[in-house]
């Protein structure tokens, strides 16, 4: 599903970071483990098409990310990826349902309210459809962010540090939820983190070492 080979990225500052080759097969989950400064956010952004300009080859679903045009990349990203970030980054001005429906809207897919409702129920957020974002607890907000990542039925879910701010109990809950939801929706889950606790629940695909 995801294949990274002989890839390196040069920062505008001049430092170059090289990534080890790795491959995550379809339906599998993988961990990108590394301390801060090791370039794991850069790698996950390269995979998700949030950043381009790399050397080497990053393939997702058999498509070379570098071969896509700017517009093609926007569309590919919207339809094939779901993102979960450490800070949930929900849009405060919108309701929970609008936050979910923003994903199909921006990806150019049909907006289906029942779909959104079903996902909210699956994640234990029934009755929160019309709620404002600031009315949610941290855990609820995180589940809304996961629902948003799932709603377009993506092939890949990319999560950047989803657990690092959580205590052990919640860390376990969130990662299991992510894995379960990804498996249920047939998506490949890739988690970039420095959180060593995740090693026990997910296979490590690649370990990045801070350069310098």
């Amino acid at each position: 599903m995801i294949r990274v080979s002989q890839t390196s990225y040069q920062y505008p500052g001049g430092t170059r970071i090289a990534f080890p080759d790795f491959h995550i097969p379809r339906g599998n989950h993988g961990l990108l483990l590394g301390n801060s400064g090791s370039g794991k956010t850069t790698l996950i952004h390269l995979i998700g098409g949030l950043l381009r300009g790399q050397q080497g080859k990053v393939e997702v679903g058999g498509v070379d990310m570098a071969s896509l045009t700017e517009q093609g990349l926007d569309q590919y990203r919207g339809r094939h990826f779901g993102f979960v970030f450490q800070k949930n980054h929900l849009i405060q001005a919108l309701t929970v349902e609008q936050n979910l429906l923003a994903a199909p809207f921006f990806a150019g897919l049909p907006q289906n309210s029942e779909n959104a409702e079903a996902l909210l129920q699956e994640l234990g957020l029934e009755g929160k459809r019309q709620a404002r974002i600031r009315e949610l607890s941290h855990g609820q907000a995180q589940r809304v962010a996961i629902a948003r990542a799932l709603i377009n039925k993506p092939t890949v879910i990319l999560a950047d540090e989803p657990t690092s701010a959580l205590d052990d109990k919640n860390c376990d809950k969130v990662i299991r939820l992510l894995m379960e939801a990804s498996t249920n929706h047939g998506a490949t889950l890739v988690v970039a983190t420095h959180d060593q606790r995740l090693k026990s629940v997910m296979p490590v695909s690649v370990e990045l070492v801070a350069s310098g």
Binding site: L50, E70, D74, R77, G78, F81, H89, F106
Partner: peptide, 9 residues
């Protein structure tokens, strides 16, 4: 976030 969801510039 909107861009990450596929919104064009």
């Amino acid at each position: 976030i909107m861009r990450s969801m596929g919104a064009s510039r």
